[in-house]
Write a protein that binds this DNA or RNA. Structure first.
Lengths: 329, 329
DNA sequence: CTGAAAGCGCTAACAG
DNA sequence: CTGTTAGCGCTTTCAG
């Protein structure tokens, strides 16, 4: 029980009450080094009694550790703040950070100017950084000071470990499903072409088309619903006989479906549509969207944990994506 | 330009380079107090040259200010972490906090145990708190230490200023639209009944029904899509002649529509469905959802700003909600 | 107008 | 195993 102290208890208060020195109290509370079980018990009791909460601020100051985990999202504009995918990353990161008393900051890293990273390196309040939708340029701009405190959700580099969904396998699973259900004129609406990790699904598409002797039908998208709509129109114009559209994101797929329907094209009867991400809405949309899972929460949790603990991690960790067949394809 | 220093510049470095004392440098950089324009210029130049970034951690320590803005969401379980509404709050808060070097932490406050708030009060790393979906019980549990550093998105109290959408007006607009388009057997799927701010739309519903001489048809929901589905089934069973359903949230409305359609009920032909929130998906769903706007970003921005600046604010600030008529009603 | 000095709360050598 | 001693980087009286 926290006694309603006028001022939160400090380590000094705890030490005094326990009858030990501040250093000893620090040791037992911090969990390192030696302490007699007697001291341990007394300090624990005192802390409990006082409702002691360590001051992360002071701890960070002396350790030079920083107190914010920055989620830096590379993008063309600040719409990254509205991206549900980014939200899930922030949410997962927040959950991991909370017990450490560390806050999360969402930051947009302009696509063509990764200098923001340098500033993050010079900011002592930054505990670590999670890069989202990284480009090779951004990776190259990671300052040395940040080494070992950065993780990437997407592509990685020699110094930045990567945590990512197995895009290629997920795309492959969806495309094979399309093929297995008889589709032979399959178009793909891609993600932004500057995004390396998005390219992997394009490569998967290309390889499957080539292996099956089918023609490539690529339209560049940007993961948004709006672009999905216009991309569908473009697809219809360029290849009127199209019988399936594979969208690189669920949001895109929703746009594709809406545009198709507006033009009297039936989904999936005339054209099958599949996405990628398995957003919550995919299950309840009409028709329910066939897609592949994207374990963002697990990925983000792993990335945040890596940054927070600074434990050595593999240069690249892949998370499986599995097909979720529903009505749209 | 930031010279690639091995270690970020400190205030000491700046002062030394500018040829003044640390205190003076602190004053000009902090913007308070007096300083000769000469000193001002020299310190500014030195800071620029060194790429100096003040250490929020140290500043917070000496000022006892805290470095995290906690978004505390009251709820039955930790699914609050997946709520898109909460995400928008976090996102907006993050945007406001970033320039101050303050991080955001998302925290679930168990519905029946608001003691987490007490802990927040004892935690020096907490700069302030934004309460989301507050209950009177949670409001009452706000510790004195937090006074002036808390804002509520939802209902407020004598010590906690409230920032909220004008629920009643929004609900009224939707319901009047339903009435104006000829609906007379209007059911409502509510939010959780323990949530005071959700009750306001119920009150609006009741009043409009009474004023129009229509019967009340209330089903308790919980804002989720899943519950929307089961609530629709329940509605159909209890009042087979229903011709409109007003859902207290868009998510609920999506569930209602899906369940209705599964049972062969046409929307809006047989039953009109309207929601509340204007989620991005509402515009592209099929049928596009009639709803009322909910300026969450503006609300959250205002709340975060109030907590951050600690400037005096009105005890209650209402944000207008407007009808967005689309296809579903 | 400016500098010297005293901490904020905590950790980390370093001697006991 | 434990206490003493220095700071981490910054703000803020208090005297010049």
């Amino acid at each position: 029980m926290a006694t309603p102290t006028p001022r939160p208890a400090t380590l000094d208060d705890v030490a005094r009450l326990a009858g030990v020195s501040r250093a000893t109290a620090s040791r037992v509370l911090g969990g390192y080094g030696f302490a007699s079980s007697d001291a341990r018990a007394r300090v624990g009791a005192a802390a409990d009694h006082l409702g002691y909460v360590p001051d992360v601020t002071a701890r960070a100051l002396v350790r030079g550790a920083g107190v914010r985990l920055v989620v830096a999202v590379v993008g063309r504009d600040d719409t990254v703040f509205d991206d549900p995918y980014v939200h899930r990353v922030v949410s997962a990161a927040s959950r991991v950070c909370a017990p450490h008393g560390i806050g999360v900051a969402l930051q947009w890293l302009p696509f063509d100017d990764p200098s923001g990273l340098v500033r993050l390196g010079a900011d002592r309040s930054v505990h670590g950084v999670i890069l989202v939708n990284t480009t090779a340029a951004a990776l190259a701009a990671v300052p040395a000071r940040l080494r070992g405190r950065v993780a990437s959700i997407g592509i990685g580099s020699a110094t930045v470990p990567s945590f990512d969904v197995d895009n290629a396998a997920g795309a492959g699973a969806v495309l094979r499903h399309l093929y297995a259900t008889g589709r032979r004129r399959i178009a793909m609406v891609t993600g932004p072409r500057w995004l390396s990790c998005a390219e992997r699904s394009v490569t998967a598409y290309r390889e499957l088309m080539r292996a099956s002797g089918l023609p490539e039908r690529l339209v560049t998208g940007d993961f948004t619903t709006v672009r999905g709509g216009s991309a569908a129109v473009e697809t219809l114009r360029r290849w009127p006989d199209v019988d399936a559209v594979y969208a690189a994101s669920d949001a895109t797929a929703f746009g594709v479906i809406a545009a198709l329907r507006e033009r009297g094209v039936r989904v999936p009867h005339d054209v099958a549509v599949a996405g990628f991400d398995d957003l919550p809405y995919a299950a309840i949309s009409s028709p329910a969207l066939t897609t592949a899972t994207h374990p963002v929460d697990r990925i983000a949790t792993a990335a945040a944990t890596a940054v927070l603990t600074r434990a050595p991690v593999a240069p690249s960790t892949a998370f499986a994506s599995t097909l979720v067949p529903r009505e749209s394809a």
